[in-house]
Design a binder for these strands. Structure first.
Lengths: 334, 334
DNA sequence: TTGTAAGCGTTATCAC
DNA sequence: GTGATAACGCTTACAA
């Protein structure tokens, strides 16, 4: 029956159903209309395989029911989980996800923002590193793990509390000489508070502790070198290490093993993120678990909330400790 | 200067620049225009922070420069890599990515197609399981790993050849009694050819081989039970196993280790996918590597090619073997 | 070259 | 309750 080459429009449906254009529109917007008309329109639409054109609708309504997710990568387990949870949360609220991957490139981050703005998204959720990001505040924007300004809501896990928790755990596990290791982006962000919380706990409880922070541009070589420099006669002076990420913790664990320092026997190790090995579904190390799912839901809630500006500028979600083989309580299960 | 509440439009820019609307449009479409005008328009646009409205443009041109990626999940390493590569390839061609996650749900797959169609995407790349998917062929569609019909181009790796390659490798590594294990979706797809290729090689070379295939709805328990049932006096009768995925290979490896069957000493194991451990960047097992990046690029090329119907219905990309510790040649490096 | 006006598919405001 | 009609922001003939 369809001789038209392009997709059917409301006009086609109206003609097919023998009703006026406006009536068709009403049917598809749930606006009350005579039952017989409703059925006629519905049938005609089905026959034609009609789908409403969101672009045209958005042009009129200024709503596209599409949100952008801007993220550095999709292959890192934390980001991939975050992406999935964000997409799921948006979908649950009837929103589509426009995905933009920045590859950790600062210029690309800005481009992505411009690009998705052209697509007239209703809002942006972004995990970025560029401290000078130009964010137009006419468009709802929620930042993850990076605080920009009071007018840009930021969602993160309780990094500071997580650092404290890690110190507390190591403390209660009998560690006397603590070490904090950090490898990460050179631009400041919420995750920096992990070390701050850790150090605060140590200071408060008069625990001996030392910290080493490096940029990930240098690779982790400096950290491994530091570890080697500390080893004297096969002995490592620290008995508890908190690493800023699980990834770093695993690298440190492997290096210590290589050097014959047994973990958790001689030194206990706690990471941050709560990543699970994909194959075994087991934690890769003892760790502070980020509530990724809640973070995603919260970010979406804030993005879509009517009065975003009433909300607090920074939302920190609670973390929890999870044993994973690199601390000594594990023998009694967890 | 901006007193308008909503985003600036071309009209605003025209007014600001003191030129006609059409002139502004031309500037943003690269259509030649007097240099002085071009500059005036550009400046006015910058001043106003103007961004073209892709929705309005698409309405007129029937092109949105947006493609949909429909995928079961973003957390599985293979899918997450595929998603990233697809997004990257699309971006390189000037396309945005609309991401839809189906969670392996057949009904959701259909919904996603409908949903992205409403957003007037220019095409869809999908990895789906629903054999009865209703695909409107008015919209370019490229399927990954599942062949629907001659009019729906399908991209996959050379699953059949990969199966052959696995058998050949095990053969050349001295295995005499082979086993193929498969756990996967109950709906047929290109990956099923892995086993077929494996068996074909065994038959051709008169190698003793056996196969066990189960649906992943049952979990992998039946496979582990089968393995247990084969063990006699601590001895396992098969000396070479090909698993349909790396994931299965790792599970089998762990189970064999648990039962005291050393791998690769007593039995050698090859998986399929080529996944790397995220932390160590090392293969999780000896494996047949899928060319994910090429698959993504190919899918995008096909999707955006003008005459898609000239192309072959099924494009199989070459795989390669990679040693990863579960086969015996590894001692001499890889 | 530049300006004008029609129209893309939809919604919303009206008379009917 | 139903059906014309004017926008929405943009592109594109076509006229100036």
């Amino acid at each position: 029956m369809r001789t038209k080459s392009s997709a059917p429009t409301m006009k086609d449906v109206a003609q097919e159903a023998g009703v006026a254009l406006g009536t068709v529109s009403k049917v598809f917007n749930g606006i009350p209309v005579g039952e017989s008309y409703r059925v006629r329109v519905q049938e005609a639409a089905d026959r034609l395989g009609y789908q409403v054109n969101n672009y045209a609708r958005g042009l009129k309504t200024n709503k596209t029911f599409t949100a952008a997710v801007i993220i550095p990568s999709t292959t890192h387990p934390f980001f991939s989980l975050l992406t999935e949870e964000l997409s799921r949360a948006l979908s649950l609220r009837g929103y589509r996800t426009l995905l933009a991957i920045t590859s950790f490139d600062l210029a690309s981050e800005q481009q992505c923002i411009e690009m998705v703005r052209q697509n007239k998204v209703d809002g942006i959720i972004a995990l970025t590193y560029n401290p000078d990001l130009r964010i137009d505040d006419s468009l709802p924007f929620v930042s993850i793990d990076r605080f920009y300004s009071a007018s840009i809501p930021c969602v993160s896990s309780d990094n500071y509390g997580g650092g404290q928790l890690a110190a507390e755990k190591l403390h209660s596990l009998g560690c006397k000489n603590l070490l904090f290791l950090r490898s990460g982006s050179s631009v400041p962000g919420e995750p920096d508070k992990r070390g701050a919380g850790f150090e605060a706990y140590c200071q408060l409880h008069r625990l001996s502790s030392q910290s080493l922070r490096i940029d990930d541009t240098e690779g982790i070589r400096p950290i491994l070198d530091f570890i080697d420099s500390q080893i004297r006669d096969g002995h490592f002076p620290f008995d508890g290490i908190f690493c800023s990420t699980d990834h770093l913790a695993v690298d440190v664990l492997n290096h210590l093993t290589l050097r014959g320092i047994p973990c958790p026997e001689e030194v206990q190790l706690i990471g941050f993120d709560g990543l699970k090995d994909f194959f075994t579904h087991k934690p890769v190390c003892s760790t502070i678990v980020q509530p990724v799912s809640e973070m995603a839901r919260t970010a979406v809630d804030i993005l879509l909330s009517q009065d975003r500006f009433r909300l607090s500028a920074l939302t920190c979600l609670p973390v929890r400790y999870q044993a994973g083989g690199t601390t000594r309580e594990d023998v009694s299960g967890s």
